[in-house]
């Protein structure tokens, strides 16, 4: 009986070590940066400062990869997906990604059948699949009310998504308990002494 406890600890330690080893593995996946990336698609003008000359990548066929985020919205035979090619594409903040600014990505209009390969869409509890699409970039799409989008014709899965765990750190739990106790105490005291007012304090 007594022997079991150290063994349990050992197993726990091993488990933690394995988890720790597994977590950074996500971050080590390397994908060459998009050319062009979403920032360049939005910003690169044919003639800087002259909007009449249009966006540089408008109408060009591009290859673009990113984390599938949120959800797929199927509209008939086609669907909308959103791919983020930002700093949180490989792992999110809960897994230890450094804060490096806003999200950045592109909306993709794609045959709905192709989206079946995507197993996970990114949110708080998930890191979405990383997929690559090929298609035409539209600075202001005629079919979609002027939206900036990519009309994709092909999709490849680069990396499946995974579940993200966000454990409660012990200090936070302790802080929550301590502060709650103090709050309840003060709340109770305030109710009890609400009408006890020293004479010089009233008017």
């Amino acid at each position: 009986m007594m022997e079991r406890i150290p063994r349990m600890f050992a197993a726990l330690a091993l488990g933690t070590a394995l988890l720790a080893a597994a977590a950074p593995a996500f971050a080590q996946d390397v994908f060459p940066p998009n050319k062009p990336d979403s920032t360049e698609l939005i910003n690169h003008m044919n003639v800087p400062g002259d909007i009449t000359k249009g966006l540089f990548w408008n109408g060009k066929t591009i290859t673009f990869h990113g984390e599938a985020i949120g959800e797929v919205m199927v509209r008939g035979d086609y669907a909308w997906i959103h791919l983020n090619d930002d700093a949180y594409m490989l792992e999110n903040v809960e897994e230890g990604a450094e804060l490096q600014g806003y999200n950045s990505g592109m909306a993709v209009w794609i045959p709905a059948a192709l989206t079946k390969q995507i197993d996970t869409y990114g949110d708080y509890q998930h890191e979405g699949s990383i997929v690559e699409v090929q298609g035409v970039f539209n600075g202001a799409c005629k079919e979609h009310g002027g939206d900036m989008d990519i009309h994709a014709t092909a999709l490849q899965m680069l990396r499946p998504g995974h579940v993200v765990v966000d454990p409660v750190p012990p200090w936070k739990a302790a802080l929550a308990v301590g502060l709650s106790a103090l709050a309840v105490l003060l709340f109770w005291l305030e109710r009890k002494y609400r009408h006890v007012i020293r004479p010089n304090r009233g008017v």
Partner: peptide, 30 residues
């Protein structure tokens, strides 16, 4: 979302401590 829930417990407690605390120390009928 447990971690987020704990964040909210801490924040609620902080608001109650501040709110009840000031009301406790600033009792007046003025």
């Amino acid at each position: 979302e447990w971690d987020t829930a704990v964040d909210f417990v801490i924040s609620i407690a902080a608001c109650l401590i501040f709110g009840s605390g000031t009301q406790l120390f600033c009792r007046t009928e003025k």
